[in-house]
Amino acid sequence: MNSVFVRTLQDKRWFILGWFIGFALLATVMVVFYPSMRQEGTLDQLMATMPDAFKGVMGDLADLTRFDTYLASQLFDIRASLLAGIMAIILAMSLTVSEEEKGLLRTMLSLPVSRVSLLLQKWLAMVAIIFVTLLGIVVAVYALQGTVDAAITFAAMTKLFFMTWLVLVAIATITFAAAMITGRRAIAMLVGVLVMAGSFIVSTFGMSVDWLADYEWLSLFHYFPASEVVRQGIETNSVVVLGSLTAISLAASLIVFRRRDVN
């Protein structure tokens, strides 16, 4: 009970509950709208008149006919990733620079807790919190899919959930690392928002802007093509890239935080 990991989870219990409910509500809305979205024809005709960039934001409407690809393109690929990305940045900031600014990091470090252990326990808590909050989507989808006469396989849900979690862990860890390395809110926020918004913009508008398409590989969302994940499975390369980004960020934060001054 008296570890930094458990204390962090306990401290963040209302955050976890709130975001769990938020994701569950988002998933509920998306599931409830599925019957009207899957009616072929009308939306397809409407979307055909829209610019490519708008199609990027709305997702691939050819995916709407199947429940799993509908969830992939309309829930996991855009809305959940964007919302959860914001949550990941808020979470990473609150566990790092917010605690340092309040003096809580000093209080923890005045106890016989090593900096490496403190950082790793906080990071593990962050990863666990992202995992638990995202379960809100899974719970809502499985609870409500019967009401719309649709179903997603456990395997497809697991793939989507895992890749969403992996992308979010990468975003959160990069923000977390920027905060632990510098101890500065402005820098950590800038890095987090750049990664999140940059990835979103590059992935969304890369469809219609030729020169931007060349840089699409820089977007973290590039490594989570949700509809493709449902259809063809998880690409090992994507997991390696996201995992490596996370590992490098975490290692950098460990190396620097062991030595730097704590405010």
Binding site: L109, S110, V113, R115, R258, R259
Partner: peptide, 9 residues
Amino acid sequence: RPGSAHISH
């Protein structure tokens, strides 16, 4: 040193 301060703590 910051990295090993916990031992003294």
